[in-house]
Design a protein around this nucleic acid. Structure first.
Length: 648
DNA sequence: GCGATCAGGT
DNA sequence: CACACCTGATCGC
């Protein structure tokens, strides 16, 4: 939860995501997204009063955030004070002190944050340097390089400070399966259930917060259905969402919530009722999206975990993992990094210390510390990235992004045109008009033209950036001026790299915890019921969450995600569980287990790092192995390194 | 009576 | 595995 006080050192006259206390005196407000912990004071009477007496104070946010905010009557009074801005459209804002008339200009650019619909990061460029406030965000490894406005020409902008969503800035949260991987796991689980009969339904036990919408849209698309939800009104101007949700409860996928007594409706009860219109009892499984993370030494990332007879937890994260954050920061290399969240069990000092390592003047040190991991992991996988899931494009270069040493001094790898994000000239103009409206002044649309062009990347050289963008804009799907929740999806589309890098250390195996080699970290895999349940095959499947384009389960197919579904137990609550949806079952387990074993073996079972082999050594090939076996069997002398156990 | 804050729950 | 949110108790105005 954000503990950001609302103000940045460089531009203390504006406030972000906090609207109480000192922030009451701000000259401009910014709301990164519509979550309550970023809206403190936003409906306060003091602020309301201030607005009524002010001619210049406005709230800046994305169109989608505006829409969501105003859908709540408590914030309706903001309507005339909100200035929605297009994504990726640098907009000059005058910060006016109404008492003295003193004025300071700053250029703000909204960047997609991938956290929830409408969520953005704010890039400020002005006399005090370039400052990035991330709000809450989830970007995948490599995404920073695709954000046009973080670049100037082919270089990374000189960022003075980053105000960071540090929710998971802790090695504990080293890895969180990518959005696509998680989505895929959920899809498989749902597909296997609802295909059994029209009475098999799924309840997505989502929190009352924005951020699950992409789940709904993707599932809706995949299963050609709508998701049952309680309210639609907030999405009325967002057809991309609206077309996948409904208040009709005769759906097989639900994300509805009961107004009260949530605990009563846990497990396999459906908030909107447990029987079909014709009276037939529904067969319900519940899926609770929740964050799951994995240590750096962990190969497996089970995106689905069974937590009860008919309940599951599915991996889902609104925030970037530790490795994603490190990638982001090592790409930008800001001078300062300020955490806006203190991860549980840590102190501000600790986090600040850790973040220092990612700051520019510490860069050598950071590289020294982290380089080995990146190098080793990267080297292991040679195959090109497998693009995965329907929303992913392939970017074979992503893997490189992983390691700090690939971050150029200050020059960014050129962002290819097709990867760049859109900015239409009209966007910019309309945004500028917004600005003009609220602080009477120059109506000219070129605010950046006459910037001092010297000092290379320093502040506000938006001009070159714009030029680059113009080339790229064609390639992107049309962006209209209409309010669109793509603010969010843009973020989504950025993360097309997926499976490759953030999990480059993984092999695609499916094993139960008990079968794991000693090197694993067992606590991560204590899948609640897993060990206690015997497989009764009623609903047992064990497969990769990313089935689509992994025809074979090669050792180096770097898909880590393993979907572990345990058999449906007895099912008396559901009345049953007739079925046998044993899909790709046990036969699949074996080969991968073997792989798992031999892989661990090769790395001496000490960790999941891709520890480099002894220079002369290599992983034995099958034929070599059988030869080895023969020798062993015949009693021939074979040199065996300490710790090797032979292949079971 | 209202808002802010905290504890406790999901 | 924690997120974002809700409710209810308490306190101050």
């Amino acid at each position: 939860m954000s503990s950001f006080a609302g103000r940045m050192k460089e531009y203390p006259t504006l406030s972000l995501d906090r609207f109480d206390r000192e922030n009451l005196h701000a000259r401009a407000y910014f709301l990164s997204h519509c979550h309550k912990d970023h809206m403190k004071g936003l409906k306060g009477p003091l602020l309301k009063r201030k607005l009524q007496f002010s001619r210049t104070v406005r709230l800046y946010c994305s169109f989608v955030t505006k829409e969501l905010l105003l859908s709540n009557p408590k914030y309706a009074f903001w309507e005339e004070y909100i200035v929605p801005l297009e994504l990726e459209s640098p907009t000059q804002i005058s910060l006016v002190d109404e008492a003295s008339g003193e004025k300071e200009d700053v250029v703000v650019t909204l960047l997609p944050a991938g956290h929830c619909p409408g969520s953005v990061m704010f890039l400020f460029e002005g006399s005090q340097g370039n400052v990035l406030y991330t709000g809450d965000f989830r970007l995948a490894v490599g995404d920073a390089s695709r954000i046009e406005h973080l670049h100037s020409g082919n270089r990374v902008k000189d960022i003075q400070s980053v105000y960071l969503d540090s929710t998971f800035y802790d090695p504990r949260f080293y890895q969180i399966p990518t959005r696509e991987v998680c989505l895929n796991g959920i899809s498989v689980l749902i597909g296997n259930w609802i295909s059994q009969s029209p009475y098999h339904v799924v309840w997505l036990n989502c929190k009352a917060a924005y951020g699950y919408e992409y789940l709904f849209t993707n599932l809706g698309e995949e299963f050609n259905t709508r998701i049952h939800v309680n309210h639609l009104a907030m999405f009325k101007k967002m057809p991309e969402i609206l077309s996948y949700v409904t208040t009709d409860r005769r759906m097989q996928i639900h994300a509805c919530r009961h107004p009260k007594d949530e605990e009563f409706f846990q497990g396999n009860r459906l908030p909107c009722g447990c029987t079909a219109p014709d009276g037939t009892p529904l067969r319900i499984i519940s899926i609770k999206p929740s964050t799951m993370w994995f240590g750096e030494r962990t190969k497996k990332t089970n995106v689905i975990i069974k937590t009860g007879a008919s309940s599951f937890r599915a991996c889902f994260s609104f925030h970037s993992s530790y490795s994603e954050l490190k990638d982001f920061l090592s790409y930008l290399r800001p001078v300062n990094i300020y955490p806006s969240v203190i991860p549980l069990g840590r102190t501000l000092t600790e986090v600040t210390q850790m973040l220092k390592l990612m700051c520019r003047n510490q860069s050598d040190q950071a590289a020294f510390i982290y380089k080995p991991l990146g190098v080793l992991k990267r080297n292991r996988v040679q195959r090109p990235t497998q693009g995965d899931t329907k929303h992913t494009n392939t970017h074979t270069d992503n893997r490189d992004r992983c390691s700090p040493q690939h971050v150029p001094e200050r020059t960014a790898p050129p962002v290819s045109v097709e990867e760049s994000l859109p900015l239409t000239v009209t966007d910019t103009q309309s945004a500028t008009h917004n600005y003009v409206d609220c602080t009477e002044s120059n109506g000219e649309e070129e605010d950046d033209d006459d910037e001092e062009g010297e000092e290379h990347d320093r502040k506000g050289d938006t001009k070159p950036t714009k030029k680059v963008i113009k080339e790229g804009e064609r390639k992107r799907k049309e962006t209209s001026n209409a309010p669109k929740w793509e603010d969010f999806f843009n973020g989504e589309m950025l993360s097309d790299s997926q499976n490759s890098q953030s999990q480059s250390c993984c092999s695609n195996t499916t094993t139960s915890p008990s079968r794991m080699t000693g090197s694993q970290t067992p606590e991560l895999f204590s899948d609640q019921e897993e060990e206690t349940h015997e497989h009764n095959d009623n609903f047992s499947l064990s497969l990769s969450a990313s089935l689509s384009n992994h025809s074979s389960q090669n050792m180096d197919s770097c898909l880590p995600d393993t979907l572990i579904l345990q058999p449906e137990q007895g099912g008396r609550e559901q009345g049953d569980v007739s079925t046998n949806t044993k899909t790709e079952s046990d036969d699949l387990i074996l080969p991968s287990e073997l792989e798992e074993l031999s892989t661990s073996q090769a790395s001496q079972a000490s960790s999941d790092f891709d520890i480099a082999c002894t220079p002369e050594s290599k992983v034995p090939r099958p034929d070599e192995l059988s030869q080895l076996y023969r020798k062993l069997a015949s009693g021939e002398e074979v040199v065996i390194r300490k710790g090797s156990q032979g292949f079971a």
